[in-house]
Amino acid sequence: MKILVIEDEIDLQQSIKESLVKEDYLVETASDYHSAIEKVFVYQYDCILLDIMLPHGSGLDILDELKQAGKTENIIIISARNSLDDKLKGLELGADDYLTKPFHLAELNARVKAVLRRKNLAGENGIAFKNTRLDISERLFFVNGQNISLNRKEFDILYYFLLNKKRLVTKTGLAEHVWGDNSDQADNLDFVYYQIKNLRKKLQDAQAEIEIESVYGIGYKLMEK
């Protein structure tokens, strides 16, 4: 899978690249309008991460040109502008998703995978890891082929972890993704902890070969045993 990261801030570009490389993607980068246009029209990408504010031009213009050339790449806009106008304009011009800076790398991963799955894995709707499998369309979870009942939030959490196998998932990132909530109230994080505790117990009881590890008190990692 080939991904192009169009972002003018080199530090951010490199972090995104590093994170995506860990997921075994082939990552290329562009840091201004002209080099982005060149790469976009010369090569074929599975997914393009596109910043709106670029030197020498706007990311929205790139979208427009892609649309006019009839190229149907998967595009995720990553922008600091969470203005609704931009969002609507971007989606209208054919972007598949819109992510506001700052974002968690785990969230970016989840979005990229969602976009790729929509394109490539149209029929297949599951994620497997060791002896477990998550059926996304039916919202079911299996360990050794046995259905394990999960409540709504537990399912969402596990899904998020499976999209970010062996990667750091922060508590706040998790809360934001699962509850759509960006308040870092202590209660909220306690609640995350409580849900994780239940989930761990269910995984252990079902003898799953995966487990949720704590990472320095700020988050978790889904690892194989």
Binding site: D11, L12, S19, K101, A106
Partner: peptide, 19 residues
């Protein structure tokens, strides 16, 4: 928002990778 959020994004993501 762009000016502030971008550096914040850079710091967050770098720390995430570091951790």
């Amino acid at each position: 928002s762009h000016e502030l959020q971008t550096p914040l994004a850079m710091v967050t993501n770098k720390l995430e990778l570091l951790l």
